[in-house]
Design a protein around this nucleic acid. Structure first.
Lengths: 125, 125
DNA sequence: CGGGATCCGAGGGGATACTG
DNA sequence: CAGTATCCCCTCGGATCCCG
């Protein structure tokens, strides 16, 4: 149980000093990002917002298939992660605009690379 | 239901012809890959195998925290996706070796880019 | 050694209804 | 318009036992 992860790749070596307490592994930023990428909608929203700013219902209609609950939840999480910015315009009726932060935009780069890989290599099927 | 996804980013445009049946969206290779990235262990296994080939229990010990069930499941899925190759050596005791396919290795590139982004931009916290 | 089969809890995610 | 609240299902993933 002690001598594990000794030959871990460089990309993760930064995260696994060695006899890594498994709690540390859960907090690993790489896995953290991977988790977020995995939840059904996050990255789709990021990609949409990479296009331009959207208002709430506009986003809701554009993604079509996402529930209000999940859209809201996804946006809140992305907001907490500083990937998305939320701007409220106190008009009548109220208007809320979502856009990518600089951090969010920077994520778009490696993300697109991955998306292109997926497209280029078919659905594996 | 009809006029949606008209301003979808180029990266997804390939996948969403327009009045997209949501089943199609589920089959989208980009989302497909993202899902797989998200499930707790897949990409960790890919990264490990990016290092070198591993035998089953060796992999099990190296990741340490993964259950047999999930390791097996993850490997099977990755195998179906042609990302991982499984080789059985009919020795006594039996030996099974897992390694990345060329496809799997090619995934490693954009994946590392994403991992580096995650490391560079802290855990957002 | 390399798994498969089964059971179970946690939470991700959809549908629907309601609100400021 | 932009959400919140509730219910409920279903999958993910861990634990445990068993097998060739």
């Amino acid at each position: 149980m002690s001598g594990t992860n000794t030959d871990v790749p460089a990309v993760l070596a930064h995260e696994l000093p060695n006899p890594v307490p498994r709690d540390e592994l859960a907090v690993c930023p790489v896995n953290g990002l991977f988790q977020r990428i995995g939840d059904k909608w996050s990255m789709l929203v990021v990609i949409m917002l990479g296009n331009r700013a959207y208002r709430y219902n506009e986003l809701h209609r554009s993604i079509e298939g996402i529930s209000q609950r999940m859209l809201t939840r996804t946006l809140r999480i992305l907001e907490d992660d500083k990937l998305v910015r939320r701007e409220v315009f106190p008009s009548v009726p109220p208007s809320v605009e979502y856009s990518l932060t600089p951090l969010g935009q920077s994520l778009l780069v490696p993300l697109s690379a991955l998306a292109e890989w997926a497209v280029r290599n078919s659905p594996t099927k």
